[in-house]
Design a protein around this nucleic acid. Structure first.
Length: 501
RNA sequence: GGGCGCGUAGCUCAGUGGUAGAGCAUCUGCCUUUUAAGCAGAGGGUCGGUGGUUCGAAACCACCCGCGCUCACCA
C-alpha cells in the first residue's frame, strides 16, 4: 500500500532503475499521445491471411515470452488481448528498450497482422513505443486452455479486500469484472433512453436537504458553515420530485445516489443508486404495466433475452407478471388477516414464526416482518405484490375500494424487492394526518419514521394531480441481471473502512 | 452490532512449538513463431500489530487492526 520511495520493495526498485535506463536511452517513459487505428477485437474479427494489414494499436503488456533475439507478448486494450511479435533484427534499438519493459507497461505498437505457426492471430511489430512505464508489479494471473477448451486461470487475483480497494487493478486483471460494469452502464442508459422516449424529463433535486424524507431510514448529517445549519444527505428523491409534479411537469425522473446511514452487507452500501419516476394523471395499475415494459425493454436491448440465471434459479421476465395481494398472500400462508388482526394477535403470530421481536415494534413493522418471513422468499419469478397496509406507506394513497390498505405495489424477483411504487397521496389533509402518525412513531422511538415536511404539505395544498410514482434500486437490479450476489460487485468503489496507514 | 472464519514473498497458497517453504512473478545466462514457452542459476519475508506463555512462537493465549461469510435492520 505504501508509496514512499524509502521502503519500496525489490520489484518496484527494479522498475525505477529500468525507468532511468530508458531515459538514458533517450526514451520518454510517459508519452503524450499515440494514434490508434485498430483494436484487438477488430483485428481478430477481420483477419485475412494475405492482406498483411497494417495496424496501430495500444494497450497494456499482460504477458511476455522472451526468446533471446525475438519475443512474444500479449497486450490488452479496451476490447481484450492480442499477441504481438518482436524481432531484434527488425526493430533494433527498440528491442533493447523492450528488454527494459515489463508486464503492466503501456505501449503503442505499429505492425502487420499475421497468424503464428500455432494459429494465433498476432501483430508483427515494426515499431514499438513506450507510452507509460508501470512502476508497480501487477498481480497478474496466467491463463491456459485445457483439452476441452475451458479456460483455466492460475493464481487469479482473488483477495476481495484488495480488489475493492484497488479496483483499478481488479479491472485490469479480472476481465469479468469489467464486463459487469459495462453491463451496468448499458442498463442505466437503456433505462434513461426508455424514459426519455416516453417524454419524461430528467431532473436533479437536492442531495443536501434541511429535512429528509421519502423513505424509512436513518440519514447522514453534514454541516453548512456559512449558514451554520446541519443538513441531511437525501435518503430518497420522492418529496422533491412530487413538488415538481405540483409545478406542472408532465412526468419527471431522477437517477442518482441516495444515502442511508445504516449497516453494510452484501445487499447494502451506504450510498446507492435509485431511479425514481413520477407521472401525473396515472395510478399504480398503470405503473405496473409500465414497469413490465421498462424491465422487458432492458432485457431486450441489453441482453436480448428474457431468461436469466440468478444463483441457482432461473428467472423469466416474460410478461404478464403474476400479481398477488399483500394481505391475501399472508393470509394464505398463515390464516391470519393482518388488517383485521389486533396488535397482540400479530405479536403472537410473529412469535410463532420465530421472528425476534425487538422493543416497541409497531403494527407496521410486525406486518412487514411477517411478510418477509412467510411470503417474500417464495417470490422467485417476477411478481407484483399489491395493496399494502396503510401503516407501512405514509406517502401512498388510500385504496379506492379496499379498507385499511393503500394503492401500492412492490415488484419481487428471486425473493428480493426490486421496485416500489404507488398511487401518490395527493390529499393534503390525509398527508398531514399520515405525517402526524409518523411523528407519534418517532416519539415512540422509531428513528426511521418521517418528520413533518411543511413545505411539501404546502406544495400539495396548491394541488397535485393524481400521480403514479416508482422507485427502482438500480444496484439490486444490476445484481439480479448480472448474477452478482454482492452489491460490492456492482459498485465500482464500494464503501470500505479506511485503510490503515 | 452478534456468531463463524481468515491475514505467511508482488500474486496464489503449504507450513500445529525447534534453521521460514512451493508454484507463478522478479533478476542473471542461453534461446529468432512462443503461448502456464523452455533450460540452468540467483535474490526476495518485522509470518497483520501489540503484549503474554515458553529455553525457544508463523504456530499457543489475550487484546487490537483489517477482510470475508452469516444473522439481525434497511433498498
Amino acid at each position: 500500500m505504501e508509496t514512499n520511495l524509502t521502503d519500496v520493495n525489490e520489484l518496484i526498485k527494479r522498475r525505477y532503475e529500468e525507468l532511468e535506463e530508458l531515459q538514458k536511452m533517450g526514451i520518454e517513459p510517459y508519452a503524450y499521445s499515440f494514434d490508434v487505428n485498430a483494436d484487438s477485437e477488430d483485428i481478430k474479427n477481420n483477419f485475412n491471411e494475405d492482406e498483411k494489414r497494417e495496424v496501430k494499436i495500444a494497450g497494456r503488456i499482460m504477458a511476455i515470452r522472451r526468446m533471446g533475439k525475438a519475443s512474444f507478448a500479449h497486450i490488452m486494450d479496451d476490447k481484450g488481448k492480442i499477441q504481438i511479435y518482436l524481432r531484434k533484427d527488425e526493430i533494433g534499438e527498440q528491442y533493447a528498450a523492450f528488454k527494459l519493459m515489463d508486464i503492466g507497461d503501456i505501449v503503442g505498437v505499429e505492425g502487420f497482422v499475421f497468424k503464428t505457426r500455432t494459429g494465433e492471430i498476432s501483430v508483427h511489430v515494426t515499431s514499438l513505443k513506450l507510452l507509460a512505464k508501470s512502476l508497480r508489479p501487477l498481480p497478474i494471473a496466467k491463463e491456459a486452455t485445457d483439452e476441452h477448451g475451458n479456460k483455466i486461470i492460475y493464481d487469479q487475483f482473488a483477495d476481495k479486500e484488495l480488489r475493492y480497494r484497488q479496483r483499478y487493478v481488479d479491472l485490469i486483471v479480472n476481465p469479468d469484472v469489467k464486463e459487469v460494469f459495462i453491463t451496468r452502464s448499458k442498463i442505466i442508459s437503456a433505462i434513461r433512453r426508455f424514459l426519455d422516449e416516453q417524454g419524461y424529463l430528467e431532473v436533479e433535486t437536492p442531495i443536501l436537504q434541511p429535512l429528509y424524507g421519502g423513505a424509512a431510514a436513518r440519514p447522514f448529517i453534514t454541516h453548512h458553515n456559512a449558514l451554520d445549519i446541519d443538513l441531511y444527505l437525501r435518503i430518497a428523491d420522492e418529496l422533491y420530485l412530487k413538488r415538481l409534479i405540483v409545478g406542472g411537469f408532465n412526468g419527471v425522473y431522477e437517477i442518482s445516489k441516495d444515502f442511508r446511514n445504516e449497516g453494510m452487507d452484501r445487499t447494502h452500501n451506504p450510498e446507492f443508486t435509485m431511479m425514481e419516476l413520477y407521472v401525473p394523471y396515472k395510478d399504480y395499475e398503470w405503473m405496473m404495466n409500465f414497469v413490465e415494459q421498462l424491465i422487458t425493454h432492458i432485457c431486450k436491448v441489453v441482453f436480448n433475452k428474457t431468461e436469466f440465471t440468478f444463483e441457482d434459479k432461473t428467472i423469466d421476465f416474460k410478461t404478464p407478471w403474476k400479481r398477488i395481494s399483500f394481505v391475501d398472500a399472508i393470509e394464505d400462508k398463515t390464516g391470519v388477516n393482518v388488517i383485521k388482526a389486533s396488535e397482540d394477535e400479530l405479536k403472537g403470530l410473529a412469535k410463532n414464526l420465530g421472528i425476534d421481536l425487538g422493543a416497541a415494534e409497531g403494527r407496521a413493522k410486525l406486518i412487514d416482518e411477517i411478510f418477509s418471513e412467510t411470503v417474500e422468499p417464495e417470490l422467485i419469478q417476477p411478481t407484483f405484490v399489491v395493496d399494502y397496509p396503510v401503516e407501512l406507506s405514509p406517502l401512498a394513497k388510500k385504496h379506492r375500494s379496499k379498507e385499511g390498505v393503500v394503492e401500492r405495489f412492490e415488484t419481487y424477483v428471486a425473493g428480493k424487492e426490486i421496485c416500489n411504487a404507488f398511487s401518490e397521496l395527493n390529499d393534503p389533509i390525509d398527508q398531514r394526518k399520515r405525517f402526524e402518525d409518523q411523528v407519534k412513531l418517532r416519539e415512540a422511538g422509531d428513528e426511521e419514521a418521517h418528520q413533518v415536511d411543511e413545505d411539501f404539505l404546502r406544495a400539495i395544498e396548491y394541488g397535485m394531480p393524481p400521480t403514479a410514482g416508482l422507485g427502482v434500486g438500480i444496484d439490486r437490479l444490476v445484481m439480479l441481471l448480472t448474477n452478482q450476489t454482492s452489491i460490492r460487485d456492482v459498485i465500482l468503489f464500494p464503501q470500505m473502512k479506511p485503510e490503515n496507514q
